[in-house]
């Protein structure tokens, strides 16, 4: 369902941060989502996992926040993994040819278990 306001779960597991956005990440939500990702980066854990399994819609402002987070992670030698992307959201990454730039896992379990 489109139009659901964004909520974000934030979990610090010690060696990794798991960020779970729920709803859509569009123009209106990108700013607050960026702030959450910055908070995750500031904790300087070796791994950040963004579980996108509960994101039903994303457009280019949402993708841009993830690209920015990836660039920050690479600068700080943090591993950033996207997990559980739906086909609909994955299609945007494919159109933007970013699906090969990100480390992507099918599920959160696969992302945390590597």
């Amino acid at each position: 369902m489109a139009g659901q306001p964004l909520q974000v779960n934030f979990e610090d597991r010690g060696t990794m941060i798991v960020v779970t956005p729920m709803g859509e990440i569009s123009y209106s939500e990108a700013t607050s989502f960026r702030a959450v990702l910055k908070r995750a980066a500031d904790l300087a854990r070796p791994r950040i996992i963004i579980d996108l399994s509960r994101v039903d819609y994303m457009n280019s402002p949402g993708v841009a926040t993830l690209v920015e987070a990836l660039q920050n992670a690479r600068r700080n030698r943090v591993r950033l993994i996207l997990a559980g992307i739906s086909p609909r959201v994955l299609a945007i990454f494919q159109i933007a040819r970013l699906h090969t730039v990100f480390e992507i896992r099918d599920t959160l379990e696969a992302a945390t278990g590597d």
Binding site: N59, S60, E68, A96
Partner: peptide, 18 residues
């Protein structure tokens, strides 16, 4: 340019691609 991986500038590309 999609080879230039950076935030922003994707909207027009997506429109033209789709």
């Amino acid at each position: 340019d999609l080879e230039d991986v950076r935030p922003g500038g994707l909207g027009v590309h997506i429109i033209r691609e789709v």
